[in-house]
């Protein structure tokens, strides 16, 4: 009696192909799936009660980020504008626009608008906007070309590896403090180097990637 039946070749081939496929699937699941946009929600713009355009307000009108996000320099949260801030202009400009009806309703009923989060961090991360502003990290470093976004989309993965890439080597991401909110800022020959800014702002990398910096 033969050790191998006539179908042994078939089983062997199937096993080999199966092993290769399994490896490919594992590789896909571990390496590729986590970084595709569907998972990271990069470039994804959640639906909002009002289709607010940063492009119009920032690049078009030249409003400073801090006109609406009033607490970004002093608080962990950048702060969403109150209805009163929208209505400062929109009580006079575009005051009958259907698009702004939720705004007027919010003002009349004294109930804040409920915007949908674009950037969500896990609860075990303690992010603070104010310290990043104070150390010269520009808004666009994390929020991408926010001044040119029609609808606000998520510009970064917010993966820990991405946070650490800057915490380990902040120099290329720093700019002079007075340029932090400039949406189209570019480094020019007269801009102080990242290393000079690091020294200026007392940014020390030796403990910037400690766990306790972001986790408690």
């Amino acid at each position: 009696m033969a050790i191998f039946t006539p179908r042994a070749n078939l089983f062997m081939n199937a096993a080999l192909i199966g092993a290769v496929l399994l490896g490919a699937c594992l590789l896909l699941a571990i390496r590729v799936v986590p970084v595709i946009g569907y998972n990271t929600q990069e470039r994804f713009a959640p639906e909002q009660p009002i289709p607010f355009s940063h492009k119009h307000h920032v690049s078009g009108l030249g409003l400073d980020c801090r006109y609406c996000h009033t607490k970004v320099e002093t608080s962990s949260s950048a702060g969403m504008p109150s209805t009163a801030i929208c209505m400062t202009c929109h009580s006079q400009v575009w005051r009958n626009a259907a698009m702004l009806a939720p705004d007027r309703q919010s003002l009349a009923e004294n109930i804040p608008l409920r915007w949908n989060r674009v950037y969500t961090l896990p609860d075990y991360v303690f992010f603070d906007h104010s310290i990043h502003i104070a150390k010269g990290v520009g808004c666009t470093e994390c929020h991408g070309p926010i001044g040119d976004m029609d609808l606000t989309w998520k510009a970064r993965t917010l993966y820990m590896s991405w946070c650490l890439s800057c915490h380990r080597d902040p120099a290329p991401h720093l700019r002079p403090r007075d340029q932090v909110t400039t949406p189209d800022w570019r480094r020019t020959p007269s801009t102080p180097s990242g290393e000079a800014l690091m020294a200026d702002y007392h940014v020390h990398t030796e403990n910037l990637s400690d766990c306790g910096v972001c986790h408690r």
């Binding site: 962990s76 949260s77 702060g79 969403m80 896990p122 609860d123 075990y124």
Partner: peptide, 12 residues
Amino acid sequence: DNMANQARRNPY
């Protein structure tokens, strides 16, 4: 639940 959602109140 996911560790990302804890009984911690975030702004808003």
